[in-house]
């Protein structure tokens, strides 16, 4: 009885959030219906013909569907792996910096690009990697012939992954820095007394303490495996690199919005969501098992 009334005001405080969730997330989901329709904008959801799973079947009939799927998974796996390692290394290195001022400055500067949109950054990236750009200019100093990075199917995925890391690693490092701050200083003191060098301290104290966080982030990012980053690739790619850069989202954009095949686009989106959902559940289980992480 007492406990119940104690909880009541918490439930009241939840209401605005839940209302927003219902209006903006639950109700719009009814639109999923058009994934099973031959959707015509003029006729709307209620007037369009039902075609069952045709939209889904068509997805697998597309000549390039395996290539597009491969590109998507390849790019996003590379991104996931790099996103685990680079911020971790960076955070550990930054943690060793002695001067507070340097530390703060570095941290601020590296996470700045996170706040810029790809529309802007793509312009910067294209300029940097162009024939007269800074990268080719530097290469020329070492006697390397200029390379057309953005129209090369070998380089394009690397550039996509690389620039994405450059944009995000500073921000991602925050989680690791937080975990680092949570390590009990007495562990370091004990290590020092035992005569451990800085490197040994990192190896035997810092890294073991970061394992839980790393495993957790790794498993949670598995749900993202079908998201290779639409806004980045859309702003960077061109027809020459369709072969290595066309992902599910860019393809759906061209079919769905440019050709106005809303039913098909919804079907693909829905399929992606379902796969993502299943992967998240699996990874959540794994996270619970190995990192003892639970939300519910």
């Amino acid at each position: 009885m007492n406990v119940k009334s104690y909880y009541k005001h918490y439930h009241l405080m939840l209401i605005p959030g839940i209302i927003l969730l219902i209006i903006f997330h639950i109700i719009p989901m009814l639109g999923i219906a058009i994934a099973f329709q031959d959707f015509r904008i003029g006729r709307g959801v209620f007037g369009s013909d039902w075609i069952g799973l045709d939209n889904f079947k068509y997805l697998f009939q597309i000549h390039d569907s395996s290539l597009i799927l491969y590109n998507t998974v390849f790019i996003s796996l590379c991104k996931i792996i790099a996103h685990l390692i680079v911020p971790l290394v960076f955070a550990v290195l930054l943690n060793e910096v002695r001067f507070m001022i340097v530390k703060r400055w570095v941290q601020t500067i590296v996470y700045l690009p996170h706040f810029l949109s790809w529309v802007i950054l793509a312009g910067v990236v294209i300029e940097m990697f162009s024939l007269k750009g800074i990268i080719n200019h530097t290469l020329q100093l070492f006697g390397v012939e200029p390379i057309m990075f953005l129209t090369s199917n070998t380089w394009f995925p690397a550039i996509v992954v690389g620039t994405d890391i450059w944009k995000e690693f500073g921000f991602a490092a925050i989680i690791y820095l937080a975990a680092l701050a949570g390590i009990n200083p007495s562990l370091y003191e004990a290590a020092e007394i035992d005569g451990a060098s800085r490197l040994k301290q990192i190896w035997y104290v810092t890294l073991p303490n970061l394992v839980t966080t790393t495993v957790l982030l790794a498993t949670l990012s598995i749900g993202n495996v079908l998201n290779a980053g639409f806004d980045q690739i859309f702003n960077l790619y061109n027809p020459v690199v369709y072969q290595s850069g066309d992902i599910i989202d860019t393809y759906v954009y061209r079919v769905g919005l440019v050709q106005a095949q809303y039913g098909f686009a919804t079907a693909v989106g829905l399929l992606k969501s379902i796969i993502g959902f299943i992967l998240i559940i699996i990874s959540y289980r794994i996270a619970y098992k190995f990192a003892n992480y639970r939300i519910f």
Binding site: F24, I27, P28, M29, L30, G31, I32, I34, I41, G44, V45, F46, N224, N227, F230, D249, V252, Y253, G256, L257, Y262, A265, T266, G269, L270, K272, S273, G276
Partner: peptide
Amino acid sequence: IGKTLILLVITGTLVSAC
């Protein structure tokens, strides 16, 4: 949010269409 951007945009606009 990023996961099904297109889906959400379309479904969102659909609702307002109705």
